[in-house]
């Protein structure tokens, strides 16, 4: 399977991930195949331990599969070396984490600009535009500990967008938020998707899963249904 880059942002074929735990092999993912087309909003759901985060790590080039093949925008990830995978993460992927993952010593604006530092790019007003988009312009010089959970997650989303990624990957983005702030984050993700961004989220939140255009259910490391 090698789908056209014009249509599929992500294509996975029989992805398997086996962890060695003590003397035992744990099969976290077992032959998962999927395709995410450009502009789609996909929610990966399933019980705890089903392999959702493992799948997200593989899609985000943060981990390597034990077997199987993965294409991102038509490029086969296994053909890339460490530098190539880092480049892909930096240039084409955006990440949002359940616990926000903000650097506590940096301001909101600096946190958003952090990926630009690694890409050796200047902000050129992009940070300001993104903060305006997520409604945090007035908080640009605040530190993370001065923000609410919802604000921190919006900062994390702005950071994920700063390098104009092809794919936004979010791991339980509402997992640490109350329902009201969770709704605001869902609305923001829907808005981004409506603007053309491809979004893949891992979630337990039915509201977020419901907001997605397609749901993939994982159980025991396999796609169900």
């Amino acid at each position: 399977m090698n789908p056209s880059p014009d249509q599929a942002v992500v294509a996975a074929e029989a992805l398997t991930k086996v962890y060695r735990r003590a003397a035992e092999d744990v099969r976290a993912l077992d032959g998962v195949s999927l395709t995410v087309r450009r502009g789609e909003f996909v929610a990966i759901v399933g019980p705890s331990g089903a392999g959702k985060t493992t799948l997200l790590n593989l899609l985000g080039c943060m981990d390597a599969p034990s077997s199987g093949r993965l294409w991102l925008e038509g490029r086969e990830v296994q053909q890339l070396n460490e530098r190539g995978r880092t480049h892909l993460r930096r240039e084409r992927l955006g990440f949002v984490f359940q616990h926000f993952g903000l650097v506590p010593t940096l301001t909101v604006a600096e946190n958003v600009a952090l990926p630009l530092v690694f890409a050796r790019r200047t902000a050129d007003g992009r940070v300001s535009r993104l903060l305006e988009k997520v409604g945090l312009s007035s908080r640009r010089n605040h530190r993370p500990h001065e923000l609410s959970g919802g604000e921190m997650q919006r900062v994390a989303i702005a950071r994920a967008l700063v390098n104009e990624p092809a794919l936004l990957l979010a791991d339980e983005p509402t997992g640490n938020l109350d329902s009201v702030t969770g709704e605001a984050v869902i609305a923001l993700l829907r808005q981004l998707n409506a603007e053309g961004l491809t979004v893949v989220v891992v979630t337990h939140n039915p509201a977020l899963a419901g907001a997605a255009g397609r749901q993939l259910r994982l159980a025991d490391g396999r796609l169900a249904g």
Partner: peptide, 12 residues
């Protein structure tokens, strides 16, 4: 935090 930097695209 260092793992986060790597996830955000920082090279080794």
């Amino acid at each position: 935090e260092l793992a986060l930097l790597r996830a955000l695209g920082a090279s080794r």
